[in-house]
Simulated assay, not measured.
Amino acid sequence: MPRHVPLYADDFTFTSPQDDQFDKAAFFDRCFPTADRMTEQRLLPVVPADDELVFVHYEYRLTTGARHHNVEAITVRDGLIREVQVLFGGRV
């Protein structure tokens, strides 16, 4: 039987231009129900900033056909995602 390995820290926070420091429960409750609107997502540059921070640029396509891109600053510590800060990029 596969062992469950956590990806997000218990003290995880999520921030975006529309949201200010959601906790882990609110992140999964608010962000993941909309995932079915995406038909494709691909990583563009992923750039480490230091030992804990990485910048991720990605592009995604919605079911409407519209393409968008975002940049996220992701903090990883002790092998767990501690914080995600989203900087919206807009339409492509």
Rank of each mutant, 00 (worst) to 15 (best):
G90E: 09
F55Y: 13
M38F: 15
A9I: 08
D36V: 06
P33Q: 03
C31I: 13
V47S: 13
D11E: 13
T39F: 05
G79V: 01
Q41H: 04
R61A: 15
G90V: 05
A73L: 13
P2M: 09
F55N: 03
F55D: 04
P2D: 10
F27I: 06
R37M: 12
D29T: 13
G65F: 06
R61K: 15
M38C: 11
V76G: 00
L53D: 04
P17Q: 14
A66V: 14
Q18H: 08
T13Q: 06
Q41A: 10
E52R: 03
E83I: 00
H68I: 00
F12H: 03
R42V: 08
A49K: 09
H69V: 02
D11K: 08
T63E: 02
A9V: 10
R61N: 01
F88H: 12
S16M: 08
F14I: 08
A73P: 00
D10M: 01
E83G: 01
D78A: 06
L43T: 00
G90L: 06
D23C: 05
L44F: 06
I74T: 08
D50L: 11
F32D: 01
G89F: 03
Q41G: 09
L80I: 06
P33V: 04
Y60A: 11
G89C: 04
R3Q: 11
M38H: 14
V5E: 14
H4V: 11
D11V: 03
T39P: 01
R30T: 10
A25H: 05
E52G: 00
P48D: 08
F12P: 01
V5W: 08
A9Q: 09
D78N: 09
H4I: 14
T64N: 12
I74L: 07
D19P: 00
L62V: 07
F88N: 11
R91L: 12
Q18E: 10
L7G: 07
A25N: 05
L80K: 08
T39H: 01
A26R: 15
A49V: 13
R77D: 04
F28P: 01
S16F: 07
F22H: 12
I74E: 02
T64L: 04
H57D: 11
L53T: 10
H57G: 01
L53C: 04
T15Q: 07
R67N: 02
Y8C: 05
T64R: 05
V5R: 13
T13K: 11
P33G: 07
R67K: 13
Q18N: 12
T64Y: 02
F27N: 11
A35D: 08
F12R: 04
L62Y: 12
L62N: 13
E72P: 00
R61Q: 14
Y8M: 02
T63P: 00
R3M: 05
F14G: 05
R37G: 03
R42W: 02
G89A: 04
E83K: 14
